[in-house]
Amino acid sequence: MSQKIDLDHRRFRQIIRGKIKRNLRKYISQGEMIGKKGKQAVSIPLPQVDIPRFRHGDKQEGGVGQGDGEVGDSLGQGEAKPGAGEAGDRPGEHLLEVEVDLDELAEILGEELELPRIEPKGAERIVSYKDRYTGIRSTGPESLKHFRRTYRQALKRQISSGTYDPKMPIIVPIREDKRFRSWKTEPLPQSNAVIIYMMDVSGSMGDEQKEIVRIESFWIDTWLRSQYQGIESRYIIHDAMAKEVDRETFFRTRESGGTMISSAYKLCAQILSDEYPSSEWNIYPFHFSDGDNWSVDDTQTCIEIVRDTLVPASNLFCYGQVESPYGSGQFIKDLLEHFNEEEKVVTSEIKDKEAIMDSIRDFLGKGK
Protein backbone atom coordinates (compact mmCIF):
# COMPACT_ATOMS: atom_id res chain seq x y z
CA MET A 1 0.00 0.00 0.00
CA SER A 2 2.77 2.45 0.95
CA GLN A 3 4.56 1.75 -2.34
CA LYS A 4 1.39 2.53 -4.30
CA ILE A 5 0.92 5.77 -2.35
CA ASP A 6 4.53 6.77 -3.05
CA LEU A 7 4.06 5.98 -6.75
CA ASP A 8 0.85 8.04 -6.89
CA HIS A 9 2.56 10.91 -5.10
CA ARG A 10 5.49 10.91 -7.53
CA ARG A 11 3.08 10.82 -10.44
CA PHE A 12 1.15 13.74 -8.99
CA ARG A 13 4.36 15.75 -8.54
CA GLN A 14 5.30 15.01 -12.16
CA ILE A 15 1.92 16.32 -13.32
CA ILE A 16 2.32 19.46 -11.24
CA ARG A 17 5.88 19.96 -12.47
CA GLY A 18 4.71 19.68 -16.07
CA LYS A 19 1.94 22.24 -15.50
CA ILE A 20 4.40 24.67 -13.91
CA LYS A 21 6.80 24.37 -16.85
CA ARG A 22 4.02 24.87 -19.40
CA ASN A 23 2.80 27.99 -17.60
CA LEU A 24 6.16 29.31 -16.41
CA ARG A 25 6.15 32.40 -18.63
CA LYS A 26 2.69 33.30 -17.36
CA TYR A 27 3.76 32.88 -13.73
CA ILE A 28 6.88 34.96 -14.26
CA SER A 29 5.13 37.81 -16.05
CA GLN A 30 2.24 38.01 -13.57
CA GLY A 31 4.29 37.48 -10.43
CA GLU A 32 1.95 34.77 -9.12
CA MET A 33 4.76 32.73 -7.57
CA ILE A 34 6.00 35.50 -5.32
CA GLY A 35 2.62 36.55 -4.00
CA LYS A 36 2.73 34.09 -1.11
CA LYS A 37 6.43 33.50 -0.76
CA GLY A 38 7.31 31.50 2.32
CA LYS A 39 10.63 30.91 3.99
CA GLN A 40 11.46 27.79 1.98
CA ALA A 41 8.55 27.43 -0.46
CA VAL A 42 6.09 29.34 -2.60
CA SER A 43 2.40 28.71 -3.22
CA ILE A 44 1.55 28.15 -6.88
CA PRO A 45 -2.08 28.41 -8.04
CA LEU A 46 -2.99 25.68 -10.55
CA PRO A 47 -6.28 24.52 -12.04
CA GLN A 48 -7.82 21.68 -10.03
CA VAL A 49 -6.48 18.28 -11.10
CA ASP A 50 -9.58 16.07 -11.27
CA ILE A 51 -9.80 12.32 -11.80
CA PRO A 52 -12.21 11.52 -14.68
CA ARG A 53 -15.44 9.90 -13.49
CA PHE A 54 -19.03 9.33 -14.54
CA ARG A 55 -21.78 11.57 -13.20
CA HIS A 56 -25.27 10.11 -12.92
CA GLY A 57 -28.42 12.18 -13.10
CA ASP A 58 -31.80 11.49 -11.54
CA LYS A 59 -33.62 8.33 -12.71
CA GLN A 60 -36.57 10.38 -13.95
CA GLU A 61 -34.45 12.35 -16.39
CA GLY A 62 -34.13 11.25 -20.01
CA GLY A 63 -30.76 10.35 -21.48
CA VAL A 64 -29.14 10.80 -24.87
CA GLY A 65 -31.36 9.28 -27.57
CA GLN A 66 -34.53 9.55 -25.45
CA GLY A 67 -37.42 11.97 -25.61
CA ASP A 68 -38.66 14.28 -28.33
CA GLY A 69 -36.41 15.80 -30.97
CA GLU A 70 -35.34 15.75 -34.60
CA VAL A 71 -32.06 14.85 -36.31
CA GLY A 72 -29.64 17.75 -35.99
CA ASP A 73 -31.14 19.22 -32.81
CA SER A 74 -28.62 20.37 -30.21
CA LEU A 75 -28.20 18.19 -27.15
CA GLY A 76 -27.16 21.19 -25.02
CA GLN A 77 -29.32 23.47 -22.99
CA GLY A 78 -28.81 26.48 -25.22
CA GLU A 79 -26.96 29.66 -24.40
CA ALA A 80 -27.61 30.94 -20.95
CA LYS A 81 -28.27 34.63 -20.52
CA PRO A 82 -26.02 36.37 -18.01
CA GLY A 83 -27.74 36.61 -14.68
CA ALA A 84 -30.72 34.52 -15.83
CA GLY A 85 -29.80 31.30 -14.04
CA GLU A 86 -31.01 30.08 -10.69
CA ALA A 87 -28.95 29.22 -7.66
CA GLY A 88 -27.32 25.83 -8.20
CA ASP A 89 -25.97 23.02 -6.08
CA ARG A 90 -22.82 22.33 -8.12
CA PRO A 91 -19.39 23.61 -7.01
CA GLY A 92 -17.56 26.07 -9.23
CA GLU A 93 -14.10 25.61 -10.67
CA HIS A 94 -11.44 26.24 -8.02
CA LEU A 95 -7.70 26.66 -8.06
CA LEU A 96 -5.37 24.24 -6.36
CA GLU A 97 -2.49 25.84 -4.49
CA VAL A 98 0.59 23.63 -4.47
CA GLU A 99 3.61 24.22 -2.24
CA VAL A 100 6.87 23.95 -4.20
CA ASP A 101 10.33 24.13 -2.61
CA LEU A 102 12.49 26.95 -3.91
CA ASP A 103 15.17 24.42 -4.85
CA GLU A 104 12.71 22.59 -7.09
CA LEU A 105 11.48 25.89 -8.47
CA ALA A 106 15.04 26.87 -9.35
CA GLU A 107 15.54 23.52 -11.09
CA ILE A 108 12.40 24.07 -13.18
CA LEU A 109 13.57 27.58 -14.05
CA GLY A 110 16.99 26.31 -15.11
CA GLU A 111 15.49 23.55 -17.27
CA GLU A 112 13.02 25.83 -19.01
CA LEU A 113 15.52 28.63 -19.68
CA GLU A 114 18.35 26.13 -20.35
CA LEU A 115 20.55 27.90 -17.82
CA PRO A 116 24.01 26.38 -17.37
CA ARG A 117 25.37 25.50 -13.96
CA ILE A 118 27.53 28.24 -12.48
CA GLU A 119 31.17 27.50 -11.64
CA PRO A 120 31.84 29.63 -8.55
CA LYS A 121 35.19 31.15 -7.77
CA GLY A 122 36.83 31.37 -4.36
CA ALA A 123 35.42 28.06 -3.10
CA GLU A 124 38.70 27.00 -1.51
CA ARG A 125 39.04 30.21 0.51
CA ILE A 126 35.70 30.39 2.29
CA VAL A 127 35.30 27.58 4.80
CA SER A 128 32.57 26.78 7.31
CA TYR A 129 32.63 23.92 9.81
CA LYS A 130 30.07 21.21 10.50
CA ASP A 131 29.90 18.66 13.31
CA ARG A 132 29.33 15.14 11.98
CA TYR A 133 28.48 12.21 14.24
CA THR A 134 30.87 9.39 13.47
CA GLY A 135 30.63 6.76 16.24
CA ILE A 136 29.91 5.76 19.84
CA ARG A 137 32.01 6.28 22.95
CA SER A 138 31.63 5.64 26.68
CA THR A 139 31.85 9.26 27.82
CA GLY A 140 30.03 12.37 26.83
CA PRO A 141 27.26 14.84 27.75
CA GLU A 142 23.78 13.54 28.60
CA SER A 143 22.37 15.41 25.60
CA LEU A 144 24.29 13.02 23.32
CA LYS A 145 23.40 9.81 25.14
CA HIS A 146 22.52 7.00 22.75
CA PHE A 147 19.49 5.30 24.36
CA ARG A 148 19.46 2.13 22.29
CA ARG A 149 23.20 1.45 22.69
CA THR A 150 22.97 2.19 26.44
CA TYR A 151 20.01 -0.19 26.82
CA ARG A 152 21.80 -2.91 24.86
CA GLN A 153 24.94 -2.59 26.97
CA ALA A 154 22.92 -2.78 30.22
CA LEU A 155 21.06 -5.86 28.94
CA LYS A 156 24.34 -7.63 28.04
CA ARG A 157 25.79 -6.82 31.45
CA GLN A 158 22.74 -8.13 33.34
CA ILE A 159 22.59 -11.34 31.28
CA SER A 160 26.29 -12.06 31.73
CA SER A 161 26.10 -11.40 35.49
CA GLY A 162 22.94 -13.51 35.92
CA THR A 163 20.80 -10.62 37.23
CA TYR A 164 18.44 -10.57 34.26
CA ASP A 165 14.98 -12.08 34.98
CA PRO A 166 12.95 -12.87 31.82
CA LYS A 167 9.77 -12.93 33.94
CA MET A 168 10.46 -9.40 35.12
CA PRO A 169 12.54 -7.89 32.31
CA ILE A 170 13.63 -4.69 34.04
CA ILE A 171 16.77 -3.12 32.63
CA VAL A 172 18.52 -0.56 34.83
CA PRO A 173 21.60 1.03 33.22
CA ILE A 174 24.47 2.03 35.43
CA ARG A 175 27.22 4.53 34.67
CA GLU A 176 29.42 1.99 32.91
CA ASP A 177 26.57 1.08 30.53
CA LYS A 178 26.05 4.55 29.15
CA ARG A 179 27.04 5.14 25.55
CA PHE A 180 27.27 8.51 23.81
CA ARG A 181 27.45 9.66 20.25
CA SER A 182 30.86 10.96 19.19
CA TRP A 183 31.56 13.52 16.53
CA LYS A 184 34.28 15.29 14.66
CA THR A 185 34.33 18.72 13.10
CA GLU A 186 34.81 18.75 9.35
CA PRO A 187 35.68 21.77 7.21
CA LEU A 188 33.14 22.49 4.47
CA PRO A 189 34.42 24.66 1.63
CA GLN A 190 31.70 27.08 0.57
CA SER A 191 31.16 29.36 -2.37
CA ASN A 192 29.56 32.56 -1.19
CA ALA A 193 27.99 35.19 -3.38
CA VAL A 194 26.65 38.69 -3.00
CA ILE A 195 24.03 40.27 -5.23
CA ILE A 196 23.88 44.06 -5.25
CA TYR A 197 20.66 45.36 -6.72
CA MET A 198 20.65 48.98 -7.88
CA MET A 199 17.49 50.68 -9.08
CA ASP A 200 16.74 54.08 -10.54
CA VAL A 201 13.82 55.55 -8.56
CA SER A 202 13.68 58.92 -10.31
CA GLY A 203 10.39 60.34 -11.51
CA SER A 204 10.42 58.45 -14.81
CA MET A 205 10.44 55.03 -13.06
CA GLY A 206 6.80 54.33 -12.26
CA ASP A 207 5.08 51.55 -10.33
CA GLU A 208 4.92 49.27 -13.39
CA GLN A 209 8.65 49.60 -14.02
CA LYS A 210 9.45 48.82 -10.36
CA GLU A 211 7.10 45.83 -10.43
CA ILE A 212 9.10 44.43 -13.35
CA VAL A 213 12.28 44.86 -11.31
CA ARG A 214 10.67 43.20 -8.27
CA ILE A 215 9.58 40.12 -10.24
CA GLU A 216 12.85 39.73 -12.10
CA SER A 217 14.86 40.14 -8.90
CA PHE A 218 12.93 37.31 -7.24
CA TRP A 219 13.76 34.91 -10.08
CA ILE A 220 17.40 35.99 -10.17
CA ASP A 221 17.57 35.35 -6.41
CA THR A 222 15.89 31.96 -6.83
CA TRP A 223 18.41 30.74 -9.39
CA LEU A 224 21.56 32.12 -7.76
CA ARG A 225 20.58 30.74 -4.34
CA SER A 226 20.37 27.30 -5.90
CA GLN A 227 23.97 27.66 -7.09
CA TYR A 228 25.61 28.83 -3.86
CA GLN A 229 25.65 27.61 -0.25
CA GLY A 230 25.66 31.15 1.08
CA ILE A 231 24.34 34.31 -0.56
CA GLU A 232 23.74 37.89 0.53
CA SER A 233 21.61 40.56 -1.11
CA ARG A 234 22.20 44.31 -0.82
CA TYR A 235 19.95 47.04 -2.18
CA ILE A 236 20.74 50.52 -3.51
CA ILE A 237 18.25 53.11 -4.78
CA HIS A 238 19.20 56.30 -6.54
CA ASP A 239 17.91 59.40 -8.22
CA ALA A 240 20.44 62.23 -8.16
CA MET A 241 21.87 60.63 -5.00
CA ALA A 242 22.27 57.00 -3.95
CA LYS A 243 21.64 55.28 -0.63
CA GLU A 244 21.55 51.72 0.64
CA VAL A 245 18.16 50.47 1.86
CA ASP A 246 16.51 47.23 2.98
CA ARG A 247 14.55 44.97 0.63
CA GLU A 248 11.11 46.34 1.49
CA THR A 249 12.19 49.94 0.98
CA PHE A 250 13.87 49.01 -2.29
CA PHE A 251 10.59 47.90 -3.84
CA ARG A 252 8.22 50.37 -2.20
CA THR A 253 10.08 53.66 -2.45
CA ARG A 254 8.38 56.47 -4.35
CA GLU A 255 10.90 59.06 -5.42
CA SER A 256 11.19 61.80 -7.98
CA GLY A 257 13.82 64.12 -9.36
CA GLY A 258 16.79 63.81 -11.64
CA THR A 259 19.12 60.89 -12.22
CA MET A 260 22.84 60.51 -11.60
CA ILE A 261 23.68 56.86 -12.18
CA SER A 262 27.27 57.32 -11.07
CA SER A 263 26.09 57.87 -7.47
CA ALA A 264 24.84 54.26 -7.36
CA TYR A 265 27.98 52.86 -8.99
CA LYS A 266 30.22 54.71 -6.53
CA LEU A 267 28.25 53.35 -3.56
CA CYS A 268 28.32 49.83 -5.01
CA ALA A 269 32.10 50.04 -5.49
CA GLN A 270 32.52 51.26 -1.92
CA ILE A 271 30.47 48.37 -0.47
CA LEU A 272 32.49 45.83 -2.45
CA SER A 273 35.79 47.39 -1.40
CA ASP A 274 34.84 47.47 2.29
CA GLU A 275 33.09 44.11 2.70
CA TYR A 276 33.45 41.74 -0.25
CA PRO A 277 36.98 41.02 -1.52
CA SER A 278 36.72 39.67 -5.03
CA SER A 279 39.17 36.85 -4.26
CA GLU A 280 36.66 35.32 -1.83
CA TRP A 281 33.25 36.39 -3.10
CA ASN A 282 31.27 35.77 -6.25
CA ILE A 283 29.88 39.22 -7.03
CA TYR A 284 26.80 40.07 -9.10
CA PRO A 285 25.82 43.74 -9.46
CA PHE A 286 22.44 44.26 -11.16
CA HIS A 287 21.35 47.74 -12.17
CA PHE A 288 17.86 48.57 -13.42
CA SER A 289 16.97 51.92 -14.99
CA ASP A 290 14.97 53.45 -17.80
CA GLY A 291 18.15 54.71 -19.45
CA ASP A 292 18.00 58.40 -18.53
CA ASN A 293 21.07 60.03 -17.02
CA TRP A 294 21.78 63.58 -15.93
CA SER A 295 24.62 64.38 -18.31
CA VAL A 296 27.19 63.03 -20.73
CA ASP A 297 29.87 63.72 -18.13
CA ASP A 298 28.13 61.55 -15.54
CA THR A 299 27.75 58.76 -18.08
CA GLN A 300 31.49 58.93 -18.70
CA THR A 301 32.08 58.63 -14.95
CA CYS A 302 29.85 55.53 -14.93
CA ILE A 303 31.83 53.97 -17.77
CA GLU A 304 35.08 54.50 -15.86
CA ILE A 305 33.73 52.95 -12.64
CA VAL A 306 32.36 49.92 -14.50
CA ARG A 307 35.60 49.43 -16.45
CA ASP A 308 38.08 50.05 -13.65
CA THR A 309 36.27 48.70 -10.57
CA LEU A 310 33.02 46.78 -11.05
CA VAL A 311 33.98 44.55 -13.99
CA PRO A 312 37.33 43.39 -12.51
CA ALA A 313 35.64 42.55 -9.18
CA SER A 314 32.50 40.88 -10.52
CA ASN A 315 31.50 37.57 -12.06
CA LEU A 316 29.03 39.55 -14.16
CA PHE A 317 27.90 43.16 -14.33
CA CYS A 318 24.28 43.21 -15.45
CA TYR A 319 22.28 46.20 -16.65
CA GLY A 320 18.55 45.90 -17.32
CA GLN A 321 16.81 48.76 -19.07
CA VAL A 322 13.10 48.90 -18.34
CA GLU A 323 11.09 50.66 -21.02
CA SER A 324 9.38 53.81 -19.80
CA PRO A 325 7.38 56.43 -21.72
CA TYR A 326 9.45 59.10 -19.97
CA GLY A 327 12.96 57.68 -20.30
CA SER A 328 15.31 58.37 -23.21
CA GLY A 329 16.81 54.86 -23.21
CA GLN A 330 20.26 56.22 -24.00
CA PHE A 331 22.33 54.58 -21.26
CA ILE A 332 22.21 51.05 -22.67
CA LYS A 333 23.56 52.40 -25.96
CA ASP A 334 26.47 54.00 -24.12
CA LEU A 335 27.29 50.74 -22.33
CA LEU A 336 27.17 48.75 -25.56
CA GLU A 337 29.42 51.28 -27.24
CA HIS A 338 32.12 50.81 -24.61
CA PHE A 339 31.62 47.18 -23.53
CA ASN A 340 30.28 45.39 -26.58
CA GLU A 341 33.26 42.98 -26.53
CA GLU A 342 33.37 42.55 -22.73
CA GLU A 343 31.87 39.17 -21.79
CA LYS A 344 31.37 40.13 -18.15
CA VAL A 345 29.07 43.03 -19.04
CA VAL A 346 25.56 41.85 -19.91
CA THR A 347 22.76 44.18 -20.96
CA SER A 348 19.09 43.47 -21.47
CA GLU A 349 16.16 45.54 -22.68
CA ILE A 350 12.95 44.79 -20.78
CA LYS A 351 10.01 46.09 -22.78
CA ASP A 352 7.30 44.79 -20.44
CA LYS A 353 6.48 41.93 -18.06
CA GLU A 354 6.34 39.46 -20.93
CA ALA A 355 10.03 40.16 -21.57
CA ILE A 356 11.17 39.24 -18.04
CA MET A 357 11.83 35.60 -18.91
CA ASP A 358 14.04 36.52 -21.86
CA SER A 359 15.87 39.07 -19.74
CA ILE A 360 16.69 36.45 -17.09
CA ARG A 361 18.12 34.24 -19.84
CA ASP A 362 20.21 37.19 -21.07
CA PHE A 363 21.69 37.70 -17.60
CA LEU A 364 22.19 34.14 -16.37
CA GLY A 365 22.63 32.22 -19.60
CA LYS A 366 26.44 32.49 -19.54
CA GLY A 367 26.86 30.49 -16.33
CA LYS A 368 29.42 32.80 -14.77
Rank of each mutant, 00 (worst) to 15 (best):
353 K>H: 14
92 G>W: 04
27 Y>G: 15
57 G>N: 10
221 D>P: 01
358 D>W: 09
84 A>T: 11
222 T>P: 01
197 Y>Q: 09
168 M>T: 09
234 R>Q: 12
287 H>P: 00
5 I>C: 04
352 D>E: 14
233 S>D: 07
126 I>Q: 12
33 M>L: 15
361 R>G: 05
306 V>M: 10
52 P>K: 12
366 K>C: 03
359 S>V: 05
228 Y>L: 08
352 D>H: 12
361 R>F: 06
85 G>W: 12
241 M>R: 14
213 V>K: 01
224 L>D: 06
24 L>H: 04
254 R>T: 13
302 C>R: 01
110 G>I: 02
238 H>Q: 01
326 Y>Q: 11
39 K>H: 07
356 I>R: 08
326 Y>F: 10
128 S>F: 03
149 R>T: 08
297 D>K: 08
290 D>E: 05
261 I>F: 06
283 I>R: 03
353 K>C: 09
146 H>S: 13
330 Q>T: 06
339 F>W: 12
315 N>I: 01
147 F>M: 07
80 A>I: 14
44 I>C: 04
205 M>W: 02
55 R>K: 13
174 I>P: 00
170 I>P: 01
34 I>R: 12
282 N>L: 02
260 M>I: 08
44 I>H: 02
38 G>K: 05
236 I>K: 01
304 E>M: 05
153 Q>V: 00
179 R>V: 03
324 S>Q: 03
137 R>A: 13
218 F>K: 06
107 E>C: 02
205 M>N: 05
357 M>R: 10
248 E>A: 08
194 V>Q: 05
317 F>G: 01
252 R>F: 00
51 I>P: 00
213 V>E: 05
168 M>C: 02
230 G>L: 09
321 Q>S: 11
96 L>Q: 15
177 D>P: 11
220 I>D: 03
240 A>P: 00
11 R>E: 13
315 N>H: 02
315 N>Q: 14
110 G>Y: 00
43 S>E: 09
